[in-house]
Design a protein around this nucleic acid. Structure first.
Lengths: 166, 166
DNA sequence: CACAACTTGATTGCGCACAACTGAATCGGT
DNA sequence: ACCGATTCAGTTGTGCGCAATCAAGTTGTG
């Protein structure tokens, strides 16, 4: 679909960054529908995924896994706790850390969430190979960007070792 | 990097949807830094892109271009107006529609924004070909998802015409 | 022990996103 | 001309994201 020719830099720019932004919101919207019956939002669902997979974890670890800080997680966990899905308690060995753990209701919800993934993959309209390729590209972008915040007028921006050109 | 084997559905699920989510936030963070000197947020920058490209447009058209509704755009435009970058006025021919237009300061800012795109593309660590491929995949996802909200227990979810399988 | 540096989570404030609603203006059919 | 349905922007309320700040707890050093 993208015809191109590097024409207006600002228009071309809108393309890739906006494509990610629009896709992200579209996916979130899809989850909004699927998660409505569970009473979860998409970020809440992500937290539940981590808890289902790892069991009780410190808030810090949740933040590392999801790239979120306490300013986001604290109220989110409060809501999950109010919903009876999660409990929080301070560690005995280190009073600074708070462990988030699943309640019975929280654990039980896993079963109901299990059919969501395939519904999502289906709705994206992507095949296995495409999904895999997309995932790999996105991971490269994310790791490139979260590697560091280049100081200022910084990096000479030499395009990274690249095979071909248009 | 993704080793795989369809193992835990919930874990595999976290992968693609979360990859988009994480990448989107990483990109927004990059823009946050780049746009700080212009005093713009990323969504505000997107609005400016549309105005730089199309000139005065109704709020409705902005919403269609960015997939945003008036609940997001009204306060955003108010802030751009307060910053002296944008003006709003009701159409003469149809009093319902409000046209957003650039002020002199708003138009002038375009020049300063012109070098942002290449900085972003560089920071993603992607080459031209990869960026193009990523863009195409994201467009497919976005259009598949925004096509419609499948009613309920709906679609039999047959993977769309696909070439190969693992 | 004393004390500074660090870690961890919570809080505050602001700006999106989005659903739901309001109210004004327009359009369609009669 | 009238009246119901529709369109458009705005407002309200909830829930993220993230910067900045804070307080409590821990660790390292003398």
């Amino acid at each position: 679909m993208p015809d191109d020719q590097p024409r207006d830099p600002l228009s071309l720019d809108a393309q890739l960054c906006f494509a990610v932004y629009a896709a992200s919101r579209a996916i979130t919207g899809l989850y909004r529908d699927l998660l409505a019956e569970l009473g979860l939002t998409y970020p809440q669902y992500l937290v539940m995924l981590v808890l289902w997979e790892r069991g009780p974890v410190p808030v810090k670890e949740l933040g590392a896994a999801l790239h979120l800080d306490s300013g986001t997680l604290s109220p989110l966990l409060r809501r999950l706790e109010a919903a009876g899905l999660v409990s929080r308690e301070r560690s005995g060995s280190d009073e600074r850390v708070v462990h988030a753990a699943l309640t019975g209701r929280g654990s039980a919800m896993r079963e109901r969430a299990e059919r969501i993934p395939e519904q999502v993959l289906c709705a994206t309209g992507l095949g296995t190979a495409d999904a895999r390729a997309l995932h790999a590209l996105l991971d490269r972008v994310t790791s490139s960007l979260s590697a560091d915040a280049p100081p200022e007028g910084a990096s000479a921006c030499q395009p990274p070792p690249q095979e071909d050109r248009a």
